[in-house]
Design a protein around this nucleic acid. Structure first.
Lengths: 321, 321
DNA sequence: CACGGCTCTCGACAAAAGTCAAATTGAGCG
DNA sequence: CGCTCAATTTGACTTTTGTCGAGAGCCGTG
């Protein structure tokens, strides 16, 4: 890169502007460049994460409902995106919040596991840039064979790029045709290493998928609509990192799961901070399953979903007493 | 406070503006207030740390000199503020850098020990606001009896205020007239508790003082010019948190030190991250003493001082070999 | 050495943000 | 009930910032 001299200038401009609080024209005369260039450098500084602008997500945890949900579900932290109030775009609203929360949870030196899906990709897409050295972003599950819009490796790489972090992809298909082949592939050193490294993560980011025809695993061709219907009858309740879970949050005992190359649920549970983000209201049952399976310690949801969860939890304790 | 509804508005405005990237007039129409109010709320949001704008201090560690200093002095990290280059105000320059470094080192839940002095107060004064819950700022040494411009409790409180943290002052004089009284006071539960809690800190912020007539301990009347001169002859090389140290960084065996109420040097050494900031070139010898005593793991200095340190370290290794 | 293709830089204009004094609100009080 | 006082809000104005197309410098290539 010939951006070496510019790199230095970007730093200096950012420093004078943001740390010292000079105006752009003052910075310009300091560095003997035009003000327009300063403006451009500053944009680059923001885009590369040399400067970091973050807003506290306090507001969303302060919500009484969030507190009650934390208690009811015994989660570490819950963020609720308001949905009636001052909303811009209901779908990106949760993603924006999730991105902020995510950045708030990341620490230098962390190892981060990232799953895939529309939700995750949306988050990656709107996430602001940061300059986190020594962060590694690892892919939690195998790739889709067919080109599909929100591929696991894309999610991983995009988040790594935003964070200036190292991205660790692994190039295995998400699902294979035979159990034997999956077994063999999992034993491959490259794959095995990646899979066993997942429990060393400090933070995981994932969503949960539905088990109907709209599910991503169906849309990307990993499962046919018919197979999915059958699995559903067999007790499938949700999809986590490409794997089917039942209502209790355990991996469903089925051929499909045995043919999948992905992080074992037990490895996921070993990750200290498991951030789950749910956008769609239709993911209520899958979310319940994930919660039952202890696959989530930090939760970002919309207000409607929060309300339903709370009502459900209330009904459950009533029934119990 | 009747700022309850406003507090909410500040959060919302900050969220829409900084997280969603709306323009001020869009935020204004969203919240049904005037754009001018939005501008005001945003300023408040920045001032209260609801939004956080930080710039990477990378540039200052990337310096080759900083790397070499880290190695030569076996420190965890060194930041060097350039002094010939694009400098605004040589004295605040180091403080601005130190404040950024400090904010970069602080973590949620941390306990932070803060000493006193002009340097520390300058840092506190230009430090930007942050919203760190569960942070406690503790005072490392006793107060001055006489009202003096940069009092230990002022330094502690100002930093706590900027961080939205809890400030833990302790109201004992820095130095007493008799050793017996100092001994008795140190045994007081309130004082003892505070002093013993110092080793639990995760981060310490201090500078080092000179041992001449210009020293703060002299200027504030804790020691007379004559006494200081005598101590100097006895081997005094610097002042740390109100205590006199010798060239090897150990507390000097003298009546003054026994009459001081302050953090034991051994407690300070137990703190994981010890950030030392030195502004004045005249503090070369005191800094050497502090370094010898292992009282510093992270260092912020100006370029001239860095050069001198490096030359000194080079000469020392040469002599050794 | 002239030629695109490239990035970086700048001036000028348009857009956005900051500021201030005046107006409004609202709480406390005689 | 009407008053004051302080805090908040606003519209109008100024300053600051963002953007765009043009031009300048800099390779590698034909």
């Amino acid at each position: 890169m010939a951006i070496r001299p510019a790199e230095q200038l970007i730093h200096k401009a950012a420093w004078l502007y943001y740390a010292h609080g000079l105006r752009q024209d003052q910075v310009a005369s300091q560095l003997n460049i035009s003000r327009a260039s300063v403006a451009m450098y500053l944009r680059k500084a923001r885009e590369t994460g040399i400067v970091n602008i973050s807003t506290s997500t306090q507001l969303f945890t302060d919500d009484v409902m969030a507190r009650r949900l934390e208690d009811a579900l015994s989660l570490d932290a819950v963020w609720i995106a308001p949905e009636n109030d001052y909303v811009i775009d209901p779908s990106t609203d949760i993603a924006v919040l999730a991105a902020s929360v995510f950045l708030e949870l990341v620490r230098k030196g962390d190892r981060i596991g990232v799953a895939w899906g529309r939700t995750i990709y949306t988050i990656a897409d709107i996430m602001s840039y940061a300059d986190l050295q020594d962060v590694t972003v690892v892919q939690l599950c195998g790739n889709l064979g067919a080109p599909y819009s929100y591929r696991p490796d894309q999610c991983t790489m995009e988040i790594a790029r935003r964070l200036n972090a190292k991205g660790l992809n692994f190039y295995a298909p998400l699902v294979l045709t035979t159990e034997a082949l999956a077994h063999g592939l999992r034993a491959e050193p490259v794959i095995r290493e990646q899979l066993s490294g997942i429990s060393d993560c400090d933070l995981a980011l994932y969503s949960v998928g539905t088990v109907d025809a709209d599910s991503h695993v169906v849309k990307c061709g990993a499962l046919s609509v018919g197979e999915m219907a059958l699995l559903r009858e067999a007790g499938a309740a949700g999809v986590i990192a490409g794997q089917i879970i039942d209502a209790s949050g355990k991996a469903l005992d089925c051929s499909y799961n045995r043919r999948v190359i992905s992080a074992a649920l037990s490895s996921l549970r070993q990750i200290e901070k498991r951030l789950m983000v749910v956008q769609e209201d239709s993911k209520f049952e899958p979310l319940l399953a994930a919660l039952a399976g202890g696959l989530c310690t930090h939760l970002v949801v919309g207000a409607r979903m929060a309300k339903r969860l709370l009502e459900h939890a209330g009904a459950a304790t009533e029934k119990a007493s």
